[in-house]
Design a protein around this nucleic acid. Structure first.
Lengths: 335, 335
DNA sequence: GTGAAAGCGCTAACAT
DNA sequence: ATGTTAGCGCTTTCAC
C-alpha cells in the first residue's frame, strides 16, 4: 500500500480510503489509485485489515473424523452439505475454513475461534459428545451443529426432523405389508437414535411389537452393512424389509442381499436415508428419506450469524420427506 | 495476551516467549503462563502473529464451478480429493481455505494470494482456461492445478496419466472382443482430451479405424449420459461397449441402457473413470480406471510447498490402473 | 479532500 | 531470564 501511495503521490490514508470506496476522496484520485492497484495486482491485506478493524469474515467448517469407524469425508452426504454451505457462506461474503477434527474431541473445534481465525464454528455432525458441545456453548463460542436436538442442550443445532423421517420410512414399509422390518444404525448417535424412535413410533401406532433382534447396530461405514446382512442371514433371522440410516448403507445392504439370492424389493424392501444424488441412479433406484440440503446450508449460516449478532437462537428442524423409488415397490410378497 | 501478562506479573514478551516454547524462559514461569492461558481459553491470535512474522499457514483450495454444465461439487470424486487434500494439508500443519469460483474466471483464484489470505492456491480442475492459468504462473502466484499437462504450460499440474488411463480402458474392452466402443466425454477439457487420445491410441495399435460417430461429447453431469444413450439408440448406432470419462457417467449410462433393454456386460460392456467409492457397490460392480487419490493430495501439497520454497517444480503424473469388475466381464457376445 | 499519528495483537532485536 | 521498544499493513480519528 505504501508503494501505491508513493506512485500515486498521495498518503497511505488516501489510498486506504480510495480502495474502500470512501466518499471523502476525490473521484479522480480514486480512479487513479484503483487503476494503479489493479495494474500491480494489489489487494488489501485482509489479515492486517482484520487486525485493525477487529473483524473477520471467516467461518470454520469442521467435519468430525471418527477414528473408530473411519467415517470421515467418505459419505457423499457430506459433500452435498459442504456444497450447500459453500453457497450459503459465499452469499454472505464469508470465507470457509475447512478442517477435520477427532470426533472424540469436538471441543478442539473452538481453537479456530479462540485464535481469532474464525468468527464462529459450523460443526457437521454431533457424534457422541453432547457434553463437549455444551461446554463450548457455555463458553459463548459461536457454534452451530448439524445434528439432533437433545435434552439439556445449550448449543444450537440445525437438523432434519429425524423422528419424523424414521416414522415415514417405517410407516411406508408397513403400508406395503412388511412386518419384519430391520433397522440398520448405531443408536448411540443422537440422529440415529431419533430415527430409531420414529421407527418404534410407527410400529407402536400399528400395534406391532418391537423385536430387538431386528435392530442392528451398524456404523456409518458401508462395510458394516455388508456384515450385518451376512450376519442376519447366517443367524436365519426372518425379515422382509430394511430401513437403513444412510443411503450408502442401504445400497451396500442391497448388494449383499443379492449375494444371498434375496431380491429387492420382492423379498426385502429397502429404504435409505439422505437422498444422495446416487440414490436415484442406483439399481434399483433407492427409496429414501430426503433431507433439504440446500436449506440446511442457509439455516446453519443464518443461525451462526444471528448468534454472533447476539440473538438467542433456537434449534431448528428441517422437514424430511419420503421419496419412493423402486426398492420399496409394492409386489406380491413371497411367502 | 496483555491480560495474561498482567495476571502472571510479567511482560507480554515473556508471555509470547512462553507460549512459543522459547528456551529462554524460566520453566516455572512458562508453566504458570501456560496454565493461565489454558484456564482463560486463550490462544495466540494467528492473524496478528502472521502479520508480524510475515508468514501464513493457509492454503486456498479452489473448486471451479462451471455455470454452464453445473458440475460443481456434485461429483463424489471431488469429495475424495478434498479428503485427501485435507489429510495432506493437516499433516503439514496447513489450514485449508475452501472456495468455489466461476470456471470461466480461474484467474480470480489469485485473489486469495494477493490479499495475503493464503500462501498458495490449489486448483481442482483446469477446465478450459489454460491461458488464465499461465498468466497466474507468470505473475509468480504459487499455484498447482489438478489436471492435464499441456504444451506451453507455465504452471504446475499434478494429474493422473490420462492418456494411459484411456488406453487401458480401451485396450481392455478390445481384449474382450468389443469392436464398437463408444467414448463418452467432452474433449474440450484437457483431461478428457487425453483420455480420448489414449482411446485412439489403443484403437490404432489394434489396427482399428476410429469411427467419429462413436465419440459422443458428454459433459460431466449425469443427465447428459442419459441423453447420450437415448440418442445413440434412437439413431440406431451399433455399439457393444462404452468408455465413460467418469464413474457417474458410466453408472448413468448403465441405468439408461437398462431402459433400452440392453444388458451390461452382455450387450454392452462399460468402463468408467475415477474409481469412486460407489463404483464397487454399484450393480453390477463397475469396471473403472483408478486414480491414486491419496497420493494426489500429497503430490499437490508437496508441489505447492516446493514452489513456495522457490524450487522449480515439474508437472507430475500419477499412475492409473485398470480395475476390472463386473461391467466388463467376459461373456458370450450377442450376435 | 488529504496527511500525520496512533494502535489493532503480536514478535524479535536490543537492552539489562 | 526478563523488559523495552519498534514495527508488521492497515484504518481512523484528528488536524489542516
Amino acid at each position: 500500500m505504501v508503494d501505491i501511495a508513493r506512485l500515486a503521490g498521495v498518503s497511505t490514508s488516501t489510498v486506504s480510503r480510495a480502495l474502500n470506496q470512501s466518499s471523502l476522496v476525490n473521484e479522480e484520485t480514486r480512479i487513479r489509485i484503483a487503476e494503479l492497484a489493479r495494474s500491480l495486482n494489489y489487494s488489501i491485506n485482509i489479515g492486517a485489515k482484520n487486525l485493525r478493524l477487529g473483524q473477520n469474515r471467516t467461518v470454520a467448517v469442521v467435519v468430525p473424523y471418527d477414528a473408530q469407524t473411519q467415517q470421515h469425508l467418505s459419505d457423499p452426504f457430506f459433500l452435498s452439505m459442504l456444497g450447500s454451505l459453500a453457497d450459503a457462506l459465499t452469499e454472505q461474503g464469508l470465507d470457509m475454513l475447512l478442517s477435520r477434527i477427532d470426533a472424540e474431541r469436538l471441543d478442539t473445534a473452538a481453537h479456530f475461534y479462540d485464535a481469532g481465525r474464525a468468527i464462529g464454528i459450523i460443526l457437521i455432525g454431533q457424534w457422541r459428545h453432547h457434553d463437549q458441545l455444551n461446554e463450548l456453548a457455555s463458553r459463548r463460542v459461536p457454534v452451530v451443529v448439524w445434528g439432533a436436538q437433545l435434552p439439556q442442550q445449550l448449543y444450537c443445532t440445525v437438523g432434519s426432523d429425524n423422528v419424523h423421517g424414521g416414522f415415514l420410512a417405517t410407516e411406508h414399509l408397513l403400508a406395503l405389508g412388511r412386518r419384519k422390518i430391520v433397522f440398520f444404525g448405531d443408536t448411540n448417535l443422537p440422529e440415529v437414535a431419533q430415527r430409531f424412535e420414529g421407527y418404534r413410533n410407527a410400529l407402536a401406532q400399528n400395534n406391532m411389537e418391537f423385536d430387538p433382534l431386528l435392530c442392528v447396530p451398524v456404523s456409518f461405514i458401508a462395510e458394516s452393512a455388508k456384515e450385518a446382512v451376512h450376519d442376519l442371514c447366517r443367524r436365519n433371522v426372518a425379515f422382509d424389509a430394511i430401513f437403513a440410516c444412510s443411503d450408502l448403507l442401504a445400497m451396500m445392504a442391497i448388494n449383499t442381499l443379492r449375494e444371498h439370492n434375496l431380491h429387492v424389493p420382492q423379498d426385502v424392501a429397502v429404504v435409505g436415508y439422505d437422498d444422495i444424488e446416487l440414490a436415484r441412479y442406483f439399481h434399483p433406484p433407492l427409496t429414501t428419506i430426503g433431507q433439504p440440503i440446500q436449506s440446511a446450508g442457509h439455516a446453519l449460516v443464518n443461525s451462526l450469524l444471528s448468534q454472533i449478532n447476539g440473538d438467542r437462537v433456537k434449534p431448528q428442524f428441517l422437514p424430511t420427506q419420503l421419496i419412493v423409488r423402486a426398492t420399496s415397490k409394492r409386489t406380491a410378497l413371497p411367502d
